[in-house]
Amino acid sequence: MAADPIHQFRIVELFPIAHIGNTEIAFTNSAMFMFAAVIIITAFLIIGTAKKSLVPSRLQSAAELSYEFVATTVRSTAGHEGMKFFPFVFTLFMFVLTLNFIGLVPYTFTVTSHIIVTAALAIMVFLTVLLYGLYRHGFHFFNLFVPKGVPIAILPLIVFIEVLSFVSRPISHSVRLFANMLAGHITLQVFAGFIILMGTAMGAIGWIGGILPFGMIVILMALETLVAFLQAYVFAILTCIYLNDAIHPGH
């Protein structure tokens, strides 16, 4: 059971809240870690800026760094007008980043390894882009699908491809994060399982041999830390790029 690589992704119901029809709404381990992330992020920023010193402390530096980092990303990809979405992108980035990092701690649960969570976030971004684009530019928003300077003969094909790529955005957006987190954690679990397997099967020699997969876990852990950050960043920057389409449609 301990070696089961998907055991870690199990949703554990902590206590039920309500029943809507046949569907049960329960407070789960997933929800617990989501709120843990909310508390960690808020505490990080609020405690970091408790003094608001001119020369920042380490924590304040880190808080300001996260702020500047996301602000620079938004400004460089979506322009100055994109800054109105800064709180949204910042929330997304910090939420995903914190959930990814929490997932790296042993015995925790990785919220972002569930497709329903990443899909919900991606669809939220998609709808934000679509609704803001329509609100801001009206029907002109659909110019996004009609690149300029394309010969009329192949225009229908191009428009079809553009629409298809636009609609498939939430899929790639969500699956990228989900698959990365899932695969990384399964790999870690599989290598950890090797140690147990060798130890129980071959005794002392097996435990010594277990150093090899353990070393692998150490290396993978470093890689997963990078992936945890990178996927959060990719999620945020893709959000910025999609928002840029809503703010400046037309190529």
Binding site: I11, E13, I20, T23, E24, I25, A26, F27, T28, S30, A31, M34, F35, A37, V38, I41, T42, L45, P87, F88, F90, T91, M94, F95, V111, H114, I116, V117, A120, L121, M124
Partner: peptide, 22 residues
């Protein structure tokens, strides 16, 4: 069968975080 719970809490947590942040 776990989707509804996750979505509800995701919505609550995300909106809460968004409001706290902004």
């Amino acid at each position: 069968n776990t989707y509804a719970s996750q979505l509800v809490w995701l919505a609550i947590a995300f909106v809460l975080l968004f409001v706290l942040m902004s």
